[in-house]
Write a protein that binds this DNA or RNA. Structure first.
Lengths: 147, 147
DNA sequence: GTGGGTGCAAAGACTTTGCAAGACG
DNA sequence: CGTCTTGCAAAGTCTTTGCACCCAC
């Protein structure tokens, strides 16, 4: 889905959720939706502070929190102590590079293992696969001794 | 594998990694290995501070970090901004309760999707499935209006 | 013995909150 | 216009680090 269409939906769903559509929120969502590297609040802020005059880290944190509550963005599971976000809402899986930390989307259909879990009293809402390893970039530079 | 056997292996592997086997490290590893709820450093410290005289939160953090480097424990992927650990090294998957935050081990064999990723230059080391939903306890209390 | 480990306190990193001023609907 | 949002600063969490003392090897 192209970016402009995503932004249309964003405006619509945000209003439905009772959120005001401010320039800051548009900028934050646009940045998140146009990237596929699942940035943290800090990383989003770093990209935006030069483009958008007078945006603050606090607003990025608060916006991400609001959008998450409204179901417009989701958190990405990680091993680190920072929260990362994704504007892609369709169920999908991730490949995490153990060298550079980059997170890539992967599209692998999952046979949802709901049946077995349901028997045991667990209600499954969503499943995602996490794969760890070295990514394209890092694999190719291994022989150079780079880190 | 029973706990005492795990502790044997722990002593052996710790020494091989050049780590001294101190009472604190044994206590921390024993606590982690005997639980299946994937505690954070803080949670481990809370359990240990009454049992082990004079253990500090700093030591828990440092020990988990050392054991992770030595490959004796692993981090668990989560959505939160706290790091959780697991002494179970065999590949396995997790069910995360969105209500109470508990993490359960689940044993679902994964067809490793290495082939497709390898073609694209990714080297897969490990894969784990993450399922979200409501757990046994939380599902059963829903009708009571409890949170 | 000695090099690594420990505990305390302080610093650092990440995130949230209070408040006054400002903007969206 | 009223309410929600913003930015700043301060506070709150979670985690790491510096340093002196101590212990496993």
């Amino acid at each position: 889905m192209e970016l402009e269409r995503k932004l249309e939906l964003f405006r619509k769903k945000a209003k439905e959720a009772g959120l005001k559509v401010t320039p800051q929120r548009i900028a934050i969502y646009r940045e998140l939706a146009s990237r596929s590297d699942h940035p943290s609040a800090e990383e989003l802020f770093e990209s935006l502070k030069d483009k958008i005059e007078g945006i603050s880290l606090t607003t990025v944190y608060r916006t991400l929190s609001s959008l998450e509550k409204a179901g417009l963005v989701v958190r990405v599971p990680t091993l680190k102590d920072k929260v990362h976000y994704d504007a892609k809402l369709e169920p999908h899986s991730h490949f995490v590079c153990v060298k550079c930390g980059a997170i890539y989307d992967i599209d692998i259909p999952l046979k949802q293992p709901s049946a077995k879990l349901s028997e045991e009293g667990f209600e499954v809402l969503n499943c995602t696969l996490l794969c760890y390893g070295t990514c394209r970039n890092c694999s190719s530079t291994v022989t150079n001794g780079q880190k």
